[in-house]
Nucleic acid binder design. Structure first.
Lengths: 142, 142
DNA sequence: TTTTATTAGTTGACGGGTCAACGATTCCGG
DNA sequence: CCGGAATCGTTGACCCGTCAACTAATAAAA
């Protein structure tokens, strides 16, 4: 007995190892960092948005937003302008160039995710999503 | 129809969000970084080991090992000595002080993980571990 | 209205990870 | 035996995230 104990620890280690693998592989496949992709995707969805809204939506630090946007601006993907109605906020939007690129990023991301979920049927995906949601819930209680 | 599509993307985002939550919460609960805990745990297991073996076992960068060990050495948890049989390698081991501490870390970690898995019965844990393993496998193919 | 508090964004410093370059040691083939 | 190839560890530079301190602008209160 105690043949193959699934071990609570195993799940924790699997989650750690999984994270270690996912981000770099995503970047290698999609050609963009997961976080930057999320930024672009949100900009695509809403067309124009303040940095603070971006930050809250994506749940990342304000400093990180500032620096990612600087990078994306330097590469011509996004543009920023002051909000004339409130000079504290800067409004961010995709440039045409950015809009061009995000579509190919989305394709690569779709391809990546379908590779990631290879072998998972519809029901398994549902179960997995539900379990991950419960884990997230538990973590938020700590 | 398309009532609540579990969405491939959802799983990806859940994994990302999960990671964002786990490490800081672990550290807050256990009082030590996940990586440093893994280092100590491995040292506890084998008593004395070279840095390169540590690195391979834990699958982290050599530079990270060097720096973590410096930190752990400064806090008196570990000791290092040269391998007299091969002056390239440095052997790392727990100090008594480190051995004292790791037990309380282990308790905190156990508590943390059991909170994390609250509401998961034995069978669900098995299913979850198996699914995470499959994800890991898929990632390694990319 | 003037003062105070709040909000948005930037910056600096830090910890964690990676990779690339380097010195020291050991191994091995000519 | 000796010189080139591996191996081990360290360091520096970079990216990504956090927090804390700061400025500028607006909102709220006295």
């Amino acid at each position: 007995m105690t043949e193959h104990l699934p071990d609570e620890d195993t799940i924790f280690e699997l989650l750690q190892a999984l994270h270690k693998g996912i981000s770099p592989k995503f970047e290698r496949c999609a050609g963009i960092t997961p976080t930057r992709f999320r930024l672009l995707q949100e900009l695509f969805r809403v067309s124009e948005i303040s940095q603070i809204s971006l930050q809250k939506t994506l749940d990342i630090d304000a400093a990180a937003v500032t620096r990612h946007l600087r990078g994306l601006e330097d590469s011509g993907m996004i543009a920023r302008r002051n909000n004339p109605a409130d000079n504290r906020v800067t409004l961010v939007s995709l440039t045409d160039h950015g809009r061009d690129h995000i579509n190919s990023y989305r394709e690569e991301k779709t391809r990546f995710i379908s590779e990631l979920l290879t072998g998972f049927n519809e029901q398994e995906r549902t179960v997995l999503a539900e379990m991950l949601t419960r884990l997230q819930y538990n973590i938020n209680l700590l």
